[in-house]
């Protein structure tokens, strides 16, 4: 009868040991990537939008559908990997309303998303997961458990660099149907975890005296026409409030009049769209003495 208790516990202990070993190994790999990134002056964090940022020399820590909690964890790991020799001056963070929408918040509550993007993101953040993240009261319990479990994906944090763009743009009759929650509900109020994570990111940047650029890409009108106007205004006000800090810059291009030829879909850009963003970003960087 004792075997019914002892054996499962022994197996569980074995699984935990394996997990610990794998986590240490993956964590060291992530640290090495972050250390490399400290050799440059600009680093880009964010989601798939980071791929449209025309900064070919800058290392990029980005993954599609990356949420703000995991971005905060990556940036936190990045800070810890740095030392006095770090050359980093500017951190570019791509932001857009989707990071605060109900889908993002639902994912951050630890629920499984059918398209499994959330699952992939949890795997990507696995190597940098630390005890401090697990005891952070603002992180929902279910998300903590899922982050812990998903370290078993043994994914690397993937630092990428270089830049490429695509010319194929949306057709002139392009349309995109948003969900009713996005159209009718004041979703920004409900984005508690994302708002908290944004605050953490801002504090991290302040503590390192980095210039933090909150870079928002142009949005297609099919998105802007549908999104709840009050929620959108709250979201923009929150970013503007964050940008009141002298070292934080909000590049607000959501309503930038980009023609359809600038969009690959309602929120990804073609070469033309990327060039428009670069026209706004590059003078900023030059102002800080950085050649893009």
């Amino acid at each position: 009868m004792r075997a019914l208790i002892h054996r499962p516990l022994a197996i569980l202990a074995g699984v935990c040991l394996l997990w610990g070993a794998a986590h240490l190994w993956m964590g060291r790999g992530a640290d090495a990537e972050f250390e490399q990134a400290h050799r440059g002056e600009v680093v880009v964090f964010g989601d798939s939008h980071a791929g449209d940022v025309r900064l070919p020399q800058a290392p990029r820590f980005a993954f599609p559908a990356q949420d703000l909690v995991s971005t905060w964890m990556w940036m936190d790991a990045f800070v810890r990997a740095g030392d006095a020799d770090s050359k980093v001056k500017v951190v570019v963070l791509t932001v857009w309303p989707s990071k605060f929408l109900p889908l993002a918040e639902r994912r951050l509550s630890g629920r499984i998303q059918e398209d499994r993007w959330g699952q992939s993101v949890l795997g990507r953040v696995g190597p940098v997961l630390g005890f401090r993240h697990m005891v952070e009261p603002a992180v929902p319990w279910r998300l903590r458990w899922r982050m812990l479990l998903n370290t078993f994906q043994l994914r690397s944090s993937i630092r990428t660099s270089g830049w490429d763009c695509q010319d194929r743009s949306i057709p002139s009759d392009y349309g995109f149907k948003m969900g009713t929650l996005v159209q009718e509900a004041p979703w920004f109020d409900g984005a508690k975890v994302s708002r908290w994570a944004l605050g953490q990111i801002v504090r991290l940047a302040e503590s390192q005296s980095w210039e933090l650029v909150l870079l928002e890409h142009p949005m297609h009108r099919s998105f802007l026409d549908q999104v709840h106007p009050g929620a959108m205004a709250d979201y923009e006000a929150a970013l503007k409030a964050a940008a009141e800090h002298p070292r934080i810059t909000y590049v607000d291009m959501a309503r930038f009049p980009l023609p359809d030829s600038g969009f690959r879909d309602y929120h990804h850009l073609t070469c033309e769209g990327s060039a428009a963003v670069a026209d706004r970003l590059e003078p900023l960087l030059e102002g800080w003495g950085i050649s893009p």
Partner: peptide, 20 residues
């Protein structure tokens, strides 16, 4: 030893969490 089961579970978690 329990390590056989531990390895089987760890590998299953690795695959199970990566795919649908």
């Amino acid at each position: 030893g329990p390590w056989v089961e531990a390895v089987l579970i760890a590998v299953s978690l690795f695959f199970g969490l990566r795919q649908a």
